[in-house]
Design a binder for these strands. Structure first.
Lengths: 205, 205
DNA sequence: GTCTATACAGGGATAGAC
DNA sequence: GTCTATCCCTGTATAGAC
């Protein structure tokens, strides 16, 4: 299995000069392996093997294993915040809540590995990195909490405690990733619809 | 720090003969460390140090590290099933659903470490052990799904997909462990009540 | 029942050749 | 830019003394 077997022509080159794509491939391999086996259980040698390079070569792209994990998590959460910012949301708390629920499910089903890591590997972050990631997560939670607070203030929703409801709803929505399988019994759209109905009812709307 | 400093009298004894309690203490230390740092990140030496014995002594109580993890998870899930079986449940699907929601929160808040491990360390189980644990988890999920199916059949609840709703509700309820802190802003009873209201509404009751 | 000592494999990370 | 080779540490698990 050689990623360059379809390389054009027979130009002279040193053994493996993939610099343009090796970085992303390392990140992809790490993402996959961390999600499957856990950060602590995956060795740098395994990651290198998956990419098709030697272990030492990894250190051209990351200073150490911890930074590799941190970059994956930060990248995921930054993507999440940016995608939500770009999402069309409609008018009013109810429309925004539906947009959030559907967006959250769609985004998370598209990136099961990154989601898994972002929720499971927090304890393997060094304190400084942990604080940084937590701030990003908090920013995302605040997006939902603002919707719930607006909804409660305008009388459209009944939410006795917006902070608790925020965490409860995110836990419920994120949970979809633990069981949903592509091509399974339920279509994505049907899953989105059912979850949205449960969310809507849960906040008394 | 010597666990036996309050030992009565001055009876002759070899250096450390704690056999009656060392087994449980090993399990407790492993539970705590696995929950805090993750199974793969914790060494047998660390566990031994926490108990106050040498690493080699652990192997008098467990054949290996994997079995230690498996026993912790199996013990937790067996306790869960047994406790639910012994729980007073009232009459009818609605009363049973409330009993389940409150029981689930209470049980899980009482054992944060065990809950964390049972949900996070599944991927570190060898296939045979994994299957065994999954069967226990499935049995617990079936308890809730039966309630939802009865509730839907009797027209008391509106649940378009009982399997999906089961997983969504359990995810939501279990999520309480990720943020609840003893002595925090909300009492346990208030948390139980708020979650129960969300569950009740989510199933359209 | 616990200790010390150790076997042996594998970990993260670095140096220097090409 | 990647390779090979290696350093040094830590991991699990076992053997044999006490």
């Amino acid at each position: 299995m050689n990623a360059c077997s379809d390389m054009p022509g027979n130009m002279a080159r040193k053994t493996g000069s993939h610099s343009e794509i090796t970085g992303p491939r390392i990140r992809a391999a790490a993402l996959h392996l961390f999600a499957r086996h856990g950060y602590a259980a995956v060795s740098m040698r395994q990651i290198a093997a998956e990419v098709g390079v030697q272990a030492g070569a990894l250190y051209l792209y990351t200073p150490d294993k911890q930074t590799l994990l941190f970059d994956l998590m930060r990248g995921h959460l930054e993507d999440l915040l940016q995608a939500w910012a770009a999402e069309p949301k409609g008018e009013g708390p109810l429309a925004r809540l539906e947009a959030f629920a559907r967006f959250h499910i769609r985004f998370h089903l598209d990136r099961p590995d990154a989601v898994f890591i972002a929720y499971m590997e927090l304890r393997n972050l060094e304190p400084e990195n942990f604080a940084s990631i937590e701030a990003l997560r908090k920013a995302y939670e605040d997006e939902l909490e603002t919707i719930l607070r607006d909804g409660a203030a305008s009388g459209l929703m009944r939410v006795p405690d917006t902070k608790l409801a925020t965490l409860a709803l995110i836990a419920m929505l994120t949970g979809v990733g633990t069981w949903y399988r592509e091509g399974g019994r339920l279509s994505r759209d049907r899953v989105e619809r059912i979850y949205w109905n449960m969310v809507r009812r849960a906040v008394g709307a």
